[in-house]
Design a protein around this nucleic acid. Structure first.
Lengths: 255, 255
DNA sequence: TTGCATATATGTATATCGCATCTAATATGG
DNA sequence: CCATATTAGATGCGATATACATATATGCAA
């Protein structure tokens, strides 16, 4: 169908010209504004539990502490784009699951000046992250996920030696919010597969869900529930090089 | 128990002094930053459905369109505080249910300059809002909530004459996100009571839930489910001045 | 071949949900 | 005063989903 363009005068009433003039005069720097950043909690799962990428800060503030990958938001950059950029530049990863989490803006959360951070979380399988890890210069911290109960509060992180890592800013709270969000998502989605390779066993998926929820799940119910979502399908293949009976490998439909 | 203060030298290592010096030199205005605002979707429910407070914009940009109450975030103001302030100054309401929703930051969502808005939503009963409405200068717009399906997209608003209202900025998308959030919350919480007076009937609560979900609910299942949450209790009183059998009035426990 | 660890199937009790039916309370109209 | 309309609330039952237990099947190693 062909659109018949109306004369500009009909589509540009007086108000628009007035508004355009207003915009010309507008001075964005007339009063001070908080700065805006994004921080990304990049999670993966292995047999030892949930892990998150943290980077040692070389600069002030909080030099020497561990921080989630983040960056300031560019003047013409979408929030999602900034989060992807932080993930790419500081974690060396692209194309992974990424979703906005919550915006943290306590006035003194950054000692420099007022910085509001839009927190994101990203999920990736362990093999992909392991491959990208050396270039990032960061480490994977274990998340000490509390069993049961609420996790709106902070979640601490530990290094390979199980010693507690001091996180910068309010990043402990961001990790706590991620765990809480994931727990909510599990109720209606097998989201755990984002933390696994393309092909995985139902047992692997159950372990991921158990780690996130912090409690054991019934094997049969879990299997039925996952298959009932209709989001998974069998590949027909089986595990290789396992000591006992190899389990069937599944993948996510419609990818 | 008495705390024995350690000498300052033990608690203030060299790194902290170095960091303090860094903070002195830090210039927050070294590069341009987006502005940060909050917008609040203030919802209530009556027999005709969900309604939201919208205010006619007297100034540019989008002069003449309808907008959610909002404000820029002060330099030393928490996000929640800014949202409460917007609700108080532009809606005349305090102490209502308020929760952060999502942060919208598309680069061109505000024609003035880059403005990132942290969207909140607030829930209040119709009587309270009706009392505060005249002073606000705004109107209550009906939300045209789609039946079933996803509502991540925009939700349009209509005036008393059922004519579509042109909303400013991306406020249609904010309303869509509110509906989506509420639908998710209903699965595990009788959150609808926030939209009702202190004492309400189960039938009222069901109507609110049906409006939000956009589909009818089974009366008995709803009643059983609500009472099973343990969050409601009977007041022992009944409705007044109704035409047929008066229903029992309930309230939320632990308030 | 045997035993082990896991996958997969079957069975059962319990909880939940939807639907139908029944009773209760109130106003209205004769 | 009484029948009736209408809504509130309770009860019962079948279908479904879930947790838990048990049984069978599979593949590998010793």
């Amino acid at each position: 169908m062909t659109r018949r363009p109306k004369p500009p005068s009909a589509r540009k009433p007086a108000l628009d010209r007035e508004e355009a003039a207003f915009l010309q005069r507008y001075d964005a720097s007339a009063f001070p504004h908080p700065s805006v950043a994004v921080d990304v909690a990049l999670l993966t799962a292995d047999e030892r539990g949930l892990r998150a990428l943290v980077l040692r800060r070389d600069d002030h503030p909080h030099r020497g502490r561990w921080a989630l990958p983040g960056t300031f938001v560019g003047m013409d950059e979408a929030l999602d784009t900034a989060a992807m950029r932080a993930l790419d530049q500081k974690g060396g990863l692209r194309g992974v699951f990424l979703e906005q989490l919550y915006t943290f803006g306590a006035p003194r959360r950054d000692p420099r000046t007022r910085v509001i951070t839009v927190a994101y979380y990203a999920l990736v399988d362990a093999a992909t992250l392991d491959a990208a890890l050396p270039a990032s210069g960061g480490i994977l911290a274990y998340l000490d996920v509390p069993w049961e109960g609420e996790t709106g509060g902070p979640v601490s992180a530990s290094g390979a030696d199980r010693k507690n890592l001091r996180l910068a800013f309010d990043h402990q709270h961001i990790l706590g919010a991620v765990v809480k969000r994931l727990r909510g998502k599990l109720d209606y989605s097998p989201i755990g597969y984002e933390l696994l390779p393309e092909r995985f066993t139902l047992r692997d998926l159950q372990r991921v869900h158990e780690t996130i929820l912090g409690r054991p799940l019934n094997k049969d119910s879990f299997r039925r529930r996952m298959l009932a979502t209709g989001e998974l399908e069998s590949t027909g293949e089986r595990e290789q090089d396992v000591r006992y009976r190899p389990a069937e490998l599944y993948r996510v439909k419609n990818v």
